[in-house]
């Protein structure tokens, strides 16, 4: 398969997944705020902070109000990681590989893009929750269409790789949002408010019901364990890595447990560390630090994928 084509399918899926997860970020915060007692100061800074683009936001918008943050993260066409920009990029990538993907996939990306574009400028805050759940559904629809209409060939595996790496990264970041929210109010730990916040967080990762099936109590440690290290929940970081590694090995034909290129080695190493670490060790070393490290290691996996498959230089 052409490197450019593989690259486009990879990024098509990353961008769709990214758009979905930005909707989740904002949604988790909207939910948290609704449950916080009246008079509590609204915290939108952390949401922007987790994107890594706080400086840019401050420069463009100044104060982190709900309106500003939603505008920035969802509808700002000049901010490259906003939902609208992600979908625009996804659509452009899809357009360049239309003869490779199924026409249903193209139609869905196209519809998805227009759906968000038509919603811009931002709907009223009251309508936001509905808007974000539509974004999530559209992303699921795309993933489902791809699964059911495209041959599970090399291109499909590159798409999976993109989606799963993006999802692992963003689940880690969603967990981080909670970390920042908690930071200024350590006294709330273990209170009702705290539990409500964890529930909101799980819901935003579509994980509340699934969590309940394996854990009775909501404790920070167990929630972190669930979102990071669960082997069965499809949005947990470990689950994403296991699936991504499978796709990577399907592409290269190397049997699992071995590596023949830097992408396999980096991803395999990260996956095995997550498989064998305990949540106690994670908490001990600091959850935020661990999340931060995981994110930068995911970036390096992505770089290795790029070097191995997409950036082929003629010798």
């Amino acid at each position: 398969m052409l490197s450019r084509v593989a690259d486009s399918i990879y990024w098509l899926n990353r961008y769709v997944e990214r758009a979905e997860n930005i909707a989740r970020f904002i949604d988790v915060n909207l939910n948290l705020l609704l449950d916080s007692p009246p008079g509590t100061q609204q915290q939108w800074n952390p949401v922007v902070l987790t994107t890594g683009d706080l400086a840019l936001f401050k420069e463009r918008y100044g104060e982190a109000t709900a309106e500003n943050v939603v505008q920035f993260l969802a509808f700002d066409a000049e901010y490259s990681n906003s939902i609208i920009s992600c979908l625009k990029a996804a659509r452009e990538n899809a357009r360049s590989v239309r003869e490779i993907i199924s026409s249903e996939m193209w139609e869905q990306v196209n519809t998805f893009y227009h759906q968000v574009k038509d919603a811009s400028p931002a709907p009223q805050l009251a309508g936001l929750s509905e808007f974000f759940s539509e974004v999530k559904m559209s992303s699921h629809l795309f993933a489902g269409i791809m699964d059911a209409t495209m041959s599970h060939n090399e291109g499909w595996h590159f798409g999976q790789l993109g989606r799963l790496i993006e999802r692992a990264d963003k689940t880690a970041r969603i967990l981080d949002v909670k970390y920042f929210i908690l930071l200024p109010s350590v006294q709330d730990i273990g209170t009702t408010l705290d539990e409500l916040q964890w529930i909101a967080l799980l819901k935003s990762a579509s994980g509340y019901e699934m969590y309940r099936k394996c854990q009775h109590r909501i404790t920070p440690q167990e929630v972190a364990h669930f979102l990071l290290l669960d082997r069965e929940f499809p949005r947990s970081v470990l689950f994403c890595l296991l699936q991504a590694e499978w796709s990577l090995h399907e592409i290269s034909g190397t049997s699992t447990g071995r590596w023949t290129n830097p992408a396999e080695r980096t991803l395999g190493r990260l996956r095995s560390e997550l498989e064998f670490i305990t949540i106690e060790e994670v908490i001990q070393g600091g959850l935020h630090e661990f999340l931060d490290q995981t994110q930068s290691r995911l970036n390096s996996v992505s770089e290795k994928i790029f070097e191995t498959f997409f950036a082929l230089e003629a010798v």
Binding site: M1, L2, S3, R4, A6, E154, F158, I251, F309, F310, L312, A314
Partner: peptide, 9 residues
């Protein structure tokens, strides 16, 4: 003339 593929030229 060669094309760049995921498996090399």
């Amino acid at each position: 003339l060669q094309m760049r593929t995921t498996k090399g030229l």
